[in-house]
Amino acid sequence: MRYVTLADVFAHPVAQKYLKRSGIAHAIATAYHAYRLALQYGVNVDLATKAALLHDIGHYEWYANGTWDYEQYKQNDIHAIKGAERAHKLLIRLGEHPKNAKEIALAILLHTDSYLPEGEFKRKPLQTIIKLADEADEEPGGKHHYRKIDETLAWKKIKQLDELVDRKMHHERLDDII
């Protein structure tokens, strides 16, 4: 059962504010990568697409002398921590099941190694998928955050992905019944 759709999330002013900061085109592309990977690895597509859409909403803009400073960002950023918190709060407000909101927030928290201590770290499948989906859309120097997408096209892609998720989840429910 889906408590909150991608369109519900995307429409919320908090999501809009932070998705615009971190790159709507990147967020949507990452959500599509997450959908594909979730199918491949048997992970819940609803949780994967929501986590991927929201994975970078904790970004802070690192500027030096009026221009984006990618190196400063790489050395000092902890966006996954702030993003996990923002996503959890947003999803709870929208009516997401608390267990789902926690799983999504944890996947966002662990989607990057940039702030984690060196060494071996074992992720759960959903967490791994969000990391891989993000990496699949990355561009050198953080340029993926600055790709543009027309608002109408963004909404079209969100609605299409919602339909794919709904169909997959409906199919799984039918399999459970049969």
Results as ranks from 00 to 15, higher is better:
N100Y: 06
G42Q: 07
L161R: 01
A31S: 06
E120C: 13
D137M: 04
L110R: 02
R123L: 11
A52F: 01
A107M: 08
I78S: 06
L110G: 01
D134V: 04
L94K: 07
R123F: 08
E61S: 11
I28F: 06
F10G: 00
W68N: 06
W68F: 10
A51V: 02
K102R: 15
H97M: 15
Y18G: 05
T30E: 05
P140C: 10
R36N: 08
V165E: 00
A154C: 02
T112E: 00
V14L: 05
H88F: 08
N76D: 14
Y32F: 14
Y18M: 10
N65H: 13
T152W: 15
I129V: 13
E163Y: 09
Y32Q: 15
R36M: 11
R173S: 08
G95D: 09
L6Q: 03
V165T: 02
E120R: 15
A29M: 14
R123V: 06
Q160Y: 13
P140M: 05
Q127L: 03
K143F: 12
D69L: 01
H144V: 10
D134F: 00
H55D: 01
V165M: 02
D137E: 11
L110V: 01
A64K: 13
I130Q: 05
R2G: 00
Y70R: 12
V165L: 03
I78D: 03
A31C: 04
E120S: 15
I129C: 05
D46L: 05
G58Y: 06
T67C: 13
D166M: 12
G66N: 07
Y35R: 10
T112R: 04
A84V: 02
R147H: 02
D113Q: 10
E138N: 13
E61G: 10
H144L: 11
H26W: 09
R93Q: 14
A25K: 07
I81R: 11
K89Q: 09
Y60C: 13
Y73S: 09
L174V: 10
P125F: 08
A105T: 05
F10D: 02
L37D: 03
L116G: 03
I108R: 01
T49W: 01
Y70C: 05
I178A: 08
A7H: 12
G58C: 14
I104S: 00
E120M: 14
P140E: 10
E120T: 14
Y41H: 15
Y41M: 12
L47M: 08
T5M: 07
K17F: 14
K148L: 03
A34D: 01
G142A: 04
M169T: 08
I178R: 12
G95V: 07
Q75S: 09
A52L: 03
H111E: 05
F10H: 01
E135L: 15
P140I: 07
N100V: 07
A84L: 01
L164K: 03
H55L: 02
H88D: 05
G95W: 10
